[in-house]
Design a protein around this nucleic acid. Structure first.
Lengths: 111, 111
DNA sequence: GCGCCAAATCGAAAAATGTCAATGTGAAAT
DNA sequence: ATTTCACATTGACATTTTTCGATTTGGCGC
């Protein structure tokens, strides 16, 4: 399903500790790439790659100004992702077990 | 940092659309492996592998009963992960830009 | 124009991941 | 005890991801 694929891209991006740290930094406000690079032991091309992944899933936006690129968090994607996380983890009523597929003991409980 | 590594494991697990779907299913209540397997086009060994990843990051708990294994979501891990997500995305005051590293235009704004 | 700087892109190598068929394990039924 | 069933583990393979050095691109200062 597209619904899952789209939303899990953000989780995939945040699944890397360094990218989560970058997001954490950006939560304080806009930063340029060079500033982020200073805080990590990684090559410039590697950071550029991580930033691309963060931008592609929508959680980070890039703004170019002269020779610099500034990054910020995207509030809209963040709230959508929060909502998705809540949606897939909060209790719902449409349990597939009600279909009684008879594959295990629990399937017949609600007869 | 361990703080990031620990929490991003959950995101990594949820970064796969099929695993996110499984979590969505489990939000309706406990399910046995066979029931989950019915809903996907994947081999039994592949499902077992996905369930292991979901269990290892803590978001899913396994309960064995006879020859069946029942899975449930772990509320504690879910709330911790929500908290982590909020922590790294909500505005904070300790911006590293205040250090004035002079690497770009924005670094000198607050002098 | 020329060279310098910030950042993106390319190409390649190493590591991790997703998937399956085959096999192992432990419980239940006969 | 033997078979069957649910699930885990293993080994193998293809794909994806991570990372780097080298190169390219585009802006800025001289």
């Amino acid at each position: 399903m597209d619904y899952y694929l789209e939303n899990t891209k953000v989780f995939k991006a945040l699944g890397d500790p360094k990218r989560a740290m970058i997001v954490d930094m950006l939560s304080c406000g806009e930063l340029c790439a060079c500033m982020i690079l200073e805080k990590f032991e990684m090559s410039q091309s590697t950071l550029s790659h991580h930033m691309k992944i963060l931008c592609e899933c929508g959680i980070v936006k890039a703004r170019e100004e002269g020779k610099w690129t500034y990054y910020t968090l995207d509030d809209d994607t963040i709230s959508k992702t929060k909502q998705f996380f809540c949606a897939i983890t909060s209790n719902k009523e449409n349990c597939i077990c009600k279909e009684n597929s008879n594959c295990c003991k629990g399937c017949n409980e609600n007869e």
